[in-house]
Design a protein around this nucleic acid. Sequence first.
DNA 1: TTAATTCGGACTAAAAAAGTCGTATTTATG
DNA 2: CATAAATACGACTTTTTTAGTCCGAATTAA
Lengths: 136, 136
Amino acid sequence: MLKIAKSVEYALFAIKYMSEKENKKCSSVAEISESQNIPFDLLAKIMQKLAKGGIILSTQGIKGGYVLNCRPEQISLNRLINILDKKIQFTNCMVDNPTTNDCHRVKNCCIRNPMQKIQNRLNELFDITTVHDLIQ
Amino acid sequence: MLKIAKSVEYALFAIKYMSEKENKKCSSVAEISESQNIPFDLLAKIMQKLAKGGIILSTQGIKGGYVLNCRPEQISLNRLINILDKKIQFTNCMVDNPTTNDCHRVKNCCIRNPMQKIQNRLNELFDITTVHDLIQ
DNA sequence: TTAATTCGGACTAAAAAAGTCGTATTTATG
DNA sequence: CATAAATACGACTTTTTTAGTCCGAATTAA
Ligand code: FES
Ligand code: FES
């Protein structure tokens, strides 16, 4: 089944929440988790990845939390997916230098090139789609 | 990870094999499985689905096997995916009449419409891509 | 000092995909 | 008619991936 990971879905709702927060106040994981019905621990991990990925800024300690570091218009779906360690990889040979370890057919794989082309189209689609497009 | 199911990959190789068979002779699962390095039992199930889906015709009994029932140009990737019981479903709410059972957010889900649009684009892509495009 | 918060890794559980097995049915051929 | 080689079909197991949980540490406002 070709599906978008739940973590990406959760990240979208979290970003939406933060983007609607008045005058750039930061939001705690607890706050987002409760209001958006997302498991706390899971969301905590997602937020840490978003912070590492530069999408949000964190403040530690009591009264800490997260703020958006850029506008949803500036975040592509593809970037979000990458930050959350998810991948678009149609076949095992869709990597830079595929070895027989990736797939034994690699030496003489007739589907590699055509598959790559479709995958590229999907990547383009995910590149031009912004988080803003998805949460408005 | 957005990936194409192995069964779809296997089906492509099987169809390629059958399409290259001279004068419409039928191919047994054993024959395809060995030449294409695909687990016998798994391929057997795939072939049965392809037969039910009308892509290939089966002949039972000794000297039986499968023949293509249409040309690879006439089979879209989407059709192949559907026949093999795989789905393109980005979120749980990407169904005809989503209930709160599919996802509790369904009543007021802001990502449903925009997600549906991207998913539609992917479906279009998979509709215009034929098996022939993938195995040449 | 304390309590609320992020940080980060290890772990478990659930779901999906991949693969295996057993038994029945079909049919060409000796 | 008996046999062997093939498909038919469903149940089952294993592996992989995703989702979710837990715990202890570090940070910091009050
Ligand atoms: S599918 Fe295996 S190498 Fe391309
Ligand atoms: S994501 Fe749950 S209803 Fe759309």
